Lab assay of single mutants.
Amino acid sequence: RLTVMSLQESGLKVNQPASFAIRLNGAKGKIDAKVHSPSGAVEECHVSELEPDKYAVRFIPHENGVHTIDVKFNGSHVVGSPFKVRVGEP
């Protein structure tokens, strides 16, 4: 089962990169992540390998409000996905 680490749920800033990590815990497959902005825009997140069992997911929010992040592994949502994060002040 995958572990999502260091996902900041609030206090993110517009046009500043945000990232979190995913540990695969021995699982093999493909991570896919997309961020949905409050206006409905959908953007791919950048996924990069940090070490053999750990990946970083990076995105840049372009507007204030609550964004939804879909994180999928081999086509299925990971536990807790979709995640909600707040950009800007509430």
Rank of each mutant, 00 (worst) to 15 (best):
G80D: 12
K28P: 13
S37D: 04
L24T: 08
L7F: 08
N64F: 08
L12C: 05
H77G: 13
V35H: 04
N15C: 04
H62L: 12
L24M: 11
A27T: 03
N15Y: 09
T68Y: 11
H77Q: 13
M5E: 07
S39F: 09
L50F: 08
L24K: 04
A18G: 06
V71Q: 00
L7S: 07
N74K: 04
H62V: 11
H62D: 13
F83E: 05
E63Q: 11
T3R: 15
M5I: 15
L12R: 01
V71D: 00
V79S: 12
V4L: 15
V71N: 00
S37Y: 06
F20I: 03
G88E: 08
R86H: 03
A33E: 00
V79M: 13
H36S: 11
V85M: 12
R23L: 11
V71A: 09
G80W: 03
S81R: 01
D70G: 11
E43D: 03
V87K: 00
G75V: 04
E9L: 04
G29V: 02
V85W: 11
H36T: 03
S39L: 09
R86K: 13
F20Q: 00
C45V: 07
L7G: 04
G65D: 13
K54V: 06
N25F: 08
L12K: 02
L50M: 08
H36D: 05
T3K: 15
A18M: 15
A33F: 12
V87G: 01
I69E: 00
E63G: 06
A21L: 14
V78K: 02
I69P: 00
R86P: 06
R23W: 05
G65I: 00
G80N: 12
V57N: 01
H67A: 08
Q8I: 07
D32R: 06
L50V: 13
I60R: 05
V42M: 15
R1Y: 15
K54W: 01
A41H: 14
L7R: 03
P17G: 09
R1H: 02
V14H: 03
K84M: 04
V79F: 03
R86M: 06
P17A: 05
E9N: 10
N25K: 10
E9C: 01
G40D: 09
S76R: 09
F73Y: 05
V14K: 15
V14D: 01
R58I: 02
H46F: 13
V87N: 01
K30N: 05
R58K: 14
A27C: 09
I69L: 11
A18S: 14
P82C: 02
G11E: 08
F59L: 04
N25H: 15
Y55D: 08
P17Q: 09
G88V: 02
S37F: 11
Q8K: 13
K30A: 10
G40P: 02
N15S: 08
S10L: 04
K34Q: 13
R1E: 15
L7T: 09
H77Y: 12
F73W: 03
S39R: 13
V42C: 12
P52K: 09
K54R: 05
N64K: 11
A21F: 02
E9S: 05
V78E: 04
F20C: 08
I31N: 00
V85D: 00
P38A: 01
K72C: 10
S37A: 09
L7M: 09
L12G: 02
S76V: 07
I22N: 00
G40C: 14
A18Y: 14
E49Y: 06
K54D: 05
K84Y: 08
A41N: 15
K72W: 07
K30E: 14
V35Y: 14
P52T: 14
K34S: 14
T3M: 15
N74Q: 09
P82Y: 02
V57M: 04
G88H: 05
V71P: 00
A41M: 04
S81E: 11
N64R: 08
I22H: 00
A33D: 00
K13N: 03
E51H: 13
S10Q: 13
H36E: 08
K84G: 05
A27P: 04
L2D: 08
V14R: 05
K84W: 02
L7N: 03
P82G: 04
S48D: 09
E44Q: 15
P52W: 14
H67Q: 10
P61K: 00
H46L: 13
K84Q: 09
V14E: 08
E89K: 06
P82E: 02
K72H: 12
K72V: 13
Q16A: 05
V35W: 13
P17R: 11
G65C: 02
S48A: 10
R58Q: 05
K28T: 13
Y55G: 10
N15P: 00
S76T: 13
R58Y: 13
L2P: 04
P38Q: 00
F73D: 06
N25D: 03
E49T: 06
R1D: 10
V57G: 14
